[in-house]
Write a protein that binds this DNA or RNA. Structure first.
Lengths: 112, 112
DNA sequence: TGGAGAGATCGACGGCTATCGATGGAATGG
DNA sequence: CCATTCCATCGATAGCCGTCGATCTCTCCA
């Protein structure tokens, strides 16, 4: 086997081709940022495994965080399009979004 | 079909079971945080598609960012265990890490 | 041996974010 | 109509992060 590194001369650097479209990158990054938090990743895991929608008060009971913080994290997941919310009386029920990009769905299948 | 939301009484919230081990969560979050940046995600995409190691000077030429910033991003990927580096003369060549967790490999297959 | 190029590190700065307490709005029940 | 409960939002604060210029180290070559 040969050396793995290609030949090169000083002062000459050629940019590699960008394999991904800019819009796709930003879209992926938005989802990744939403998932790149321990609390939110666990929230998504719980929702993905739950057959029924989960009341957000149960998350408040599950995590050692204040109620506004839990609400804030869930809002992040909502803004990223990962979860849907439905109100029932004084309660708010969250579930995994029904219309997930196939790429996002595959991501969650790997992660949680 | 019945109502989707379970019955509930006021003042009673039961925490749902945590589906993932804490260590697994933190490990995934570390990788997700490394990928949750447009520059780094594109870097990984370029490395994944490249048969040969890529000189970091080519990344500096590709992105509209300063050389320290490119070096900083690559260091983040290194710390997350996503890339390997090999020095050759005055140049530094990066490639996708050979020993990737199966989960991480699957993640990259979905993303890039 | 000294100059030049490549790359990592340092220090600083601005912006984003996770967190909290306090507040406000909506629905429920007395 | 009022108290209670749930939940979202607001305002503030501390810590993290992306970015840069400056600097340092290392290698190569004239």
């Amino acid at each position: 086997m040969k050396s793995a590194v290609p030949d090169r001369v000083k002062g000459v650097c050629s940019p590699p081709a960008m394999p991904m479209a800019l819009a796709k990158v930003d879209q992926s990054v938005e989802v990744l940022k939403a998932l790149a938090d321990p609390t939110r990743l666990q929230m998504v895991g719980i929702l993905k495994r739950s057959a029924e929608p989960v009341c957000i008060c149960d998350f408040t009971a599950a995590f050692d965080l204040s109620q506004p913080t839990i609400s804030h994290h869930m809002a992040k997941l909502r803004e990223a399009g990962l979860v849907d919310v439905s109100k029932a009386g004084i309660w708010a029920y969250y579930r995994l979004a029904s219309r997930l990009e196939p790429k996002t769905r595959a991501l969650l299948d790997v992660l949680v």
